[in-house]
Amino acid sequence: MILVFIEHKDCVLNKTSLEAIAAAQSIGKDLGLGVTAVLPCDKDCSLAQEIAGYAVEKVLIAKNEKLGTYTPDAYADAWEHVIKALAPKYVVMSHTYQVRDFAPKVAARLGREVVGDCIRYRAEGGKLVLTRRIFLGKLDADVTLGGDAPYFVTFQSGAFRGDAAEKGSGAVETMEVTIGDVRMTPEAPFQEAKASVDLTRSEIIVAVGRGIKSQENIAVAQQLADALGADLAASRPICDSEWLPIDRQIGSSGQTVAPKLYIALGISGAIQHIVGMKNAGTIVAVNKDAEAPIFDIADYGIVGDLFEAVPVLVDEIAKAKG
């Protein structure tokens, strides 16, 4: 059996869980295993029926009053209970921030570890070989799982398509789970005051990464942005260093944008950045490292020094615009 985690907040689905369902269905077919979806909740979760509409054998509501608001302790106890009761072969999840928070704890408690943030898998001799990115996306590694089941696997967002999750009908069941002491007290989640620049409406974005080297050099990128009538954005380290304000950050912990044109200057292309801009119409990358992962998703690339390329770009744009 494969267990797949359905993430939600107040019974509203986190859509990446559909990707996890697609992954679990695919693995299930390859290994001849059925899929059970697990939904931790403090009530008879209204989401259960929706999930039961996918090709799963069962939707299991893991129920306990302590599962109303997410805490790692409560979730770990709930999962421990479910796993001990059902003895699954695989536990499949999407590599979300919440999963990163509790899955390694559950695995460790059962004497296992998670093979995390995988981008694909293949089945070989009845077992999985998983591929994960290492060195910030510069290399891929094929990884095998050790020891006995259960095996814990998480997939990177986008590794599977949520809309490819097969429809069907599963039975809904409830399992009362035991949860011990919860050693942390959550407050309500909130959003920081609305960003003063809304990059989601930008048509053209010029984004700078660590390759820009210093705060003074931001002016170089600004000139290009001005020439194109573009907005300036950045990767996380630039905002961490306070060279640009946080509302310019693109990526999993910043804004998600889809402009017509995205020019990445000195950005390596780590997955947490890419998820925020991969849907741009045209992607241009200027990077002196020919192997930088940003080139995997770029339409046009210049391999070289941005400080040589950008002034020429500015001049040529001025000429072209006449």
Partner: peptide, 16 residues
């Protein structure tokens, strides 16, 4: 026993 192990490291396949 349950350690995951790298079998092979390689350059990522280009998709675009």
């Amino acid at each position: 026993a349950s350690a995951s192990a790298i079998q092979k490291v390689y350059m990522p396949l280009k998709t675009k």
